[in-house]
Design a protein around this nucleic acid. Structure first.
Lengths: 243, 243
DNA sequence: ATAATAGTGTCTTTCAGACATTATCTA
DNA sequence: TAGATAATGTCTGAAAGACACTATTAT
């Protein structure tokens, strides 16, 4: 056994100076997806200041120890600043930290994935010119700031996986939606068509959605409008759709 | 459009002082599991200094911007310091950051889950007295430093999930192992018995293990010794075992 | 031979895939 | 009515659960 220090914890804390040690820069970045006009889109922000000034980036910002009680607060603050609202689905994805990703020095960013209905923040986003929804496919071909291309690819891959065993992607739709709508969203994530019957059957059997009684007619037979049940947020099917 | 700053990025970086802004303390903690004598165990370290001096904690440490190129380096450095080796399986799990978790101030820790064979570091661990393997169940009942009880619970839950759709837990076993051995490990994680036939069938059909030709006899009929194929690291079954 | 453990054969059950059929709207 | 899209019926196939059975060791 090492002998314990002779000073008390209180004395230790009184003396402690956090800024005495070199520490990474700490940020939070969010990958906010939506589904609009048959297209997966992601929210990007034009960087107004150095470094990487002028480039498009994921919405993000420094953790503010004074304003944020925890990391989730930071993520929500950052997203609200760019969309005017807080998305109905937000989840921590991964943390990226290394020497090189930011020219200012050793930096670390905690990445969040979030989903929102396009209409829920359309007017806000349209009102500013440094924020835009970009089609996911073109965003992934673009040069983004820092390692955001990687964060974006990882977030998409995670959401793609979820499309195989959950209906979490539905949070990218309005509160009420049709099953064909949800199916095309899943198909966009998976990059391939899904069997209609299987898709509906598993959702209905697991009782993940509630029929509103309303219908939406676009062309052809009207589709039933559903609302997600809260249990769908965490529900996972025992069996994946084929990858 | 905002006008871009007139100074160049190079000038900006030359002026930039990272320590001018308050930043969280940044650490990495690792949850290292093993399976020995029919028991799940986790590696704990006795804290030699303030804060939480004398309490048991997960192995961890500050990110060292000078020594670590990235977060993985930090995780491996921390684990090597406590076990003498680097585990064959290590994966980032989640990041915990808030005002309260560390009395020194706003702090953030990136949690890693790792697996290793007990024998691979037994002698090293036995040689020091501030490190020990503790049965997972008792560790979870103990008061651990900081929010490590939560990190431990989350890591266990993630590994439990993996037991349902992969054979990743096998990295907690020696390089060669028997299928009954692997099955009892999965059963320990899931807290319930598994059907023998199903367990073997899916592993064999997916060709996740290689027969070494050797047998191990404990009592009764000798069991075949297998080695994991590299593809088992990332393989996931299409269908989960029943939760 | 018996006890103990490893490993197999095979039937049932569950649920996704395939695909034809029916339903309900607009023009 | 035709065209379009939504929704269902029903068969097939793949893979997990149940469980009885066989195989191989030590004592």
């Amino acid at each position: 056994m090492h002998p314990p220090d002779q000073i008390s914890e209180a004395d230790f804390l009184a003396e402690y100076d956090a800024s005495a040690f070199p520490s990474p820069l700490v940020t939070v970045d969010a990958v906010l997806f939506t589904y609009d006009a048959g297209t997966l889109k992601v929210l990007l922000v034009k960087r107004s200041s150095h470094p990487e000034q002028g480039k498009w980036a994921l919405p993000g910002g420094f953790v503010d120890p004074a304003a944020d009680r925890n990391l989730n607060d930071t993520a929500m603050r950052v997203l609200k600043a760019k969309t005017g609202v807080t998305p109905p689905y937000i989840e921590q994805l991964a943390t990226y930290g290394d020497q090189r990703r930011d020219k200012r020095g050793w930096s670390l960013t905690v990445s969040y994935t979030a989903l929102i209905a396009h209409q829920a923040c359309q007017s806000f986003v349209d009102s500013v010119d440094d924020v835009q929804w970009l089609a996911l496919d073109s965003a992934q071909r673009k040069a983004l700031a820092f390692d955001h291309k990687q964060l974006l690819a990882d977030a998409r891959e995670r959401l793609r996986q979820k499309a195989l065993y959950s209906i979490v992607p539905a949070y990218a739709l309005p509160e009420t939606f049709t099953l064909p709508e949800l199916q095309t969203l899943h198909e966009a994530l998976l990059g391939k068509p899904l069997p209609r019957k299987s898709f509906r059957r598993r959702i209905e059997q697991a009782d993940l959605v509630m029929d509103t009684g309303l219908k939406r007619t676009e062309r052809g037979r009207p589709a039933a409008l559903y609302r997600m049940r809260e249990r769908a947020r965490d529900f996972t099917f025992l069996r994946n759709l084929e990858a």
